[in-house]
């Protein structure tokens, strides 16, 4: 199982190459064009992160996130969520880049293979920028009353954070 997971990236690339070969896709051209699109994504993320990283670094230097984590720790403890991830939880529904910045900070500080690092990665990998996405869809559809969509979506987010913390503790705790 673990050997299979180690080989995830090359195996997935093999599958994609085989699918493309069967359909007679220009393999090299597609890979290069895709990488070019990825570069454009990075060009979109970079300015956002330049705006967000300094604010998060300032916040970290103030020690407020730790204070906030302590304040919320009874509630987080009851849910089984590590208080270190407080900032990530609060940013996740609002800003995708903000959450990425918070998660990468946790991953680099605690280590990619630490429990906190893994929990942060699973949390961000199994959730979305809820408030941004719902605002986008309702605005595009021209519907003003979003009714129960946002509460239900936030329920899903809470379930995601709780289950991420639980499964990571189970697998690597």
């Amino acid at each position: 199982m673990s050997a299979l997971l180690d080989l995830t990236a090359p195996l997935l690339i093999c599958c994609a190459l085989l699918c493309a070969a069967f359909q007679r896709v220009d393999i090299y051209g597609a890979l290069v064009e895709g990488a070019r699109k990825g570069l454009r994504v990075m060009a979109d993320i970079l300015p956002a992160l330049v705006a967000l990283f300094p604010a998060l670094a300032l916040l970290r230097s103030s020690g407020l996130p730790a204070l906030l984590g302590e304040l919320l720790s009874p509630a987080l403890h009851a849910l089984g969520i590590p208080p270190e991830t407080t900032l990530l939880l609060l940013l996740r529904p609002i800003s995708g880049s903000g959450a990425l910045a918070a998660a990468s900070e946790l991953i680099e500080r605690w280590g990619a293979d630490s429990l906190i690092g893994r929990t942060a990665a699973v949390m961000i990998g199994s959730s979305e920028t809820t408030l941004y996405v719902s605002a986008l869809y309702f605005a595009a559809a021209g519907v003003k009353r979003s009714r129960w969509a946002v509460p239900a979506a936030l329920c899903a987010d809470l379930a995601c954070f709780v289950s991420s913390a639980w499964i990571c503790r189970l697998l690597w705790g």
Binding site: L5, D6, T8, G111, A112, V122, S126, A156, C160, L171
Partner: peptide, 23 residues
């Protein structure tokens, strides 16, 4: 960040995604 196996979180992500979609 130097993960030994960057994708070894996949099963955890799938479980967590499935649970949150169901919720």
């Amino acid at each position: 960040a130097g993960a030994a196996s960057a994708f070894d979180i996949l099963p955890a992500v799938w479980v967590s995604s499935a649970l949150s979609v169901c919720a």
